[in-house]
């Protein structure tokens, strides 16, 4: 376990060094993403200015939900950037490279890329939390726990959806739909949805674990909510690893020559 963690740290250091080779692009994309997120959030400020409460859901809740979702999305892109194009990697036979090395395939492939703009998302999440007016040191601790567990669920969901590429032979359409679905559901007030939709948001497209549930935890500590988040993260992660490895048994490639940089 410790060996794999050291391996991950080395990968992240290498990724960061590679990203810093294009420092201007990294910084401009990060700042651009912070602005992008901030400008997008203005929509909610306008909405809640006109309609102050949606079944008990207010602008403060939106700041926290948006903060958790943005930071989780950003952390996934920063540390496991290939989670966003795993389907393409499978379809194009680019897993060959990772399979030939003595390291856990899924971990290696996911952590082999950094998405530069993700740093902007990650930072914006904290800005959004601070702007919510609910900032406290305890809250910050819960925010960090919430982001970590939301990232785990988000990554697991991406792996699950993109592992379908082992069976279907295509990945990009499902990936963009899946990302759209989980992000969109996560940043809308959960009070909008009826019981059936809520079951879907916990079990099928686990957006509740990426938005409303951790946001509730940030607002006030609760053992049951923490337990629910841990259970959700562990459950989805286990399922994702099992499905990926089941798919890996079906994997075949044309031995095309690939270069992994």
């Amino acid at each position: 376990m410790f060996r794999e963690f050291k391996f991950l740290l080395s990968l992240w250091k290498t990724n960061l060094a590679a990203a810093m080779e294009y420092r201007a692009a990294f910084i401009s994309q990060s700042i651009g993403m912070i602005l992008n997120d901030a400008v997008y959030f203005v929509v909610w400020i306008i909405f809640f200015d006109r309609f102050p409460s949606i079944i008990g859901w207010q602008l403060t809740d939106m700041f926290i939900v948006f903060g958790i979702s943005a930071s989780a999305f950003g952390l996934a892109g920063l540390l496991f950037g290939n989670a966003f194009n795993l389907g393409d990697i499978i379809v194009k036979g680019r897993l060959d490279y990772y399979l030939s090395l003595p390291r856990p395939t899924l971990l290696h492939v996911l952590a082999s890329r950094v998405v530069p703009s993700s740093f902007g998302d990650f930072l914006y999440g904290f800005i959004s939390y601070i702007a919510s007016g609910q900032f406290s040191l305890g809250g910050l601790g819960r925010f960090l726990v919430g982001v970590a567990l939301a990232t785990t669920v988000f990554l697991a969901f991406l792996v699950l959806v993109q592992s379908l590429a082992f069976w279907l032979g295509t990945g990009s359409i499902f990936t963009s739909m899946a990302i759209n679905a989980i992000i969109t559901f996560a940043i809308y007030p959960i009070t909008l949805f009826n019981q059936t939709a809520k079951v879907i948001l916990f079990l099928v497209v686990p957006a509740a674990f990426m938005g409303a549930v951790p946001a509730g935890f940030v607002k006030g500590f609760s053992w049951s909510v923490l337990g629910l988040m841990l259970f959700g993260a562990a459950g989805f992660l286990t399922l994702a690893i099992l499905v990926f490895h089941a798919g890996l048994r079906r994997y075949e490639s044309g031995s095309a020559i690939q270069t992994e940089v």
Binding site: A25, S28, G32, L35, V39, Y40, V43, S117
Partner: peptide, 18 residues
């Protein structure tokens, strides 16, 4: 003129949103 145009595109899209 610039290395990366993606940020301009994101922000433009958000201005259209709002």
């Amino acid at each position: 003129a610039v290395e990366e145009v993606a940020p301009f595109e994101w922000i433009y899209q958000k201005f259209v949103f709002i």
